[in-house]
Amino acid sequence: MNEKQVEKSPRILTLVKGIIKENPLFVTLLGTCPALATTTSIESALGMGLLFMFVLIGSNIVISLLRKITPSEVKIPVYIVVIATFVTIVKMFSQAYLPELYSKLGVFISLIVVNCIVLGRAEAFASKNGVFDSFLDAIGNGIGYTLAIVIIAFFRELLGTGGFTFGKTLTFIPYIKFTPLKDYAISMFTMPTGGFLVLGVVLAFLAYRTNKKQEIEAFKEKEARRLSKEEAK
C-alpha cells in the first residue's frame, strides 16, 4: 500500500462508517421518535432526512470550529444553542419554501434539537476532530439515518396504502400516484401501530443476520482449529 492510500482510507471510513456499520438508527438505536412519527410516507421520511442532514452538517462544522475555544464546563449548553440555531434556520426555510412538508412534519422539525444523534455526533466526533472530518462524519450519519427512515417508510407506505405517492409533500418533484394494491391496503400500517411493528421487525431481521454471521464465523474458526490440530498429529 502506498502512502497516499494510507492517508486516504480513514477519511473514506469516516464517511462510510455512519451509513451501514454504525447506522445511527438501526445499530445505536438513537433518534427513534422521528423515525416512527415521520415515516408514514416515503416522501415525508425523505424530507425529514434531508432537513436532519442539513442540521447535522451545520452543527458538526460549527462545533468543530469552536472546539478549541469551548470551555468543557459549558460544552453541552454551547452544543444545544448551536443545534437549536440550525433547527430554527431549517424551520423557517421549510415554512417559507416547503409549506406542505412543514405542516406534515409539524413539531418534529423543532424536535430535531433533542434528537440524540445530533448531540451524540457533536460530543463524540465534532468536538475532537477537524472541520473536514466532522463534515464527512455528518454526511455519513445523515445519509445513514435518511436511508434507515426511508426503509421503514417504504414498508409502511406500501403495506398501509398499497402503493406510493410522490409529489404531495415535496412539491418540487412531479406528482405520481402508483397504488396497484389499493384494495389490499392494511391501514394499520400508517397508524402508530405500524411504526412500532415495522421498526421491530426490521431490527429483528438485522439481529438475525448478525447472529447468523457470528455463527458462521464461530463455525469456521472451529473448523480451522480442528484442521490445524489434525495436521499437527
Partner: peptide, 19 residues
Amino acid sequence: PKCLKGVPIALITAALMSL
C-alpha cells in the same frame, strides 16, 4: 426467538399496546 430478544420484541409489544 434469539433474533427478537431485547428491543425488537419490546417494539412489537409496544405495537400491540398501541393497537
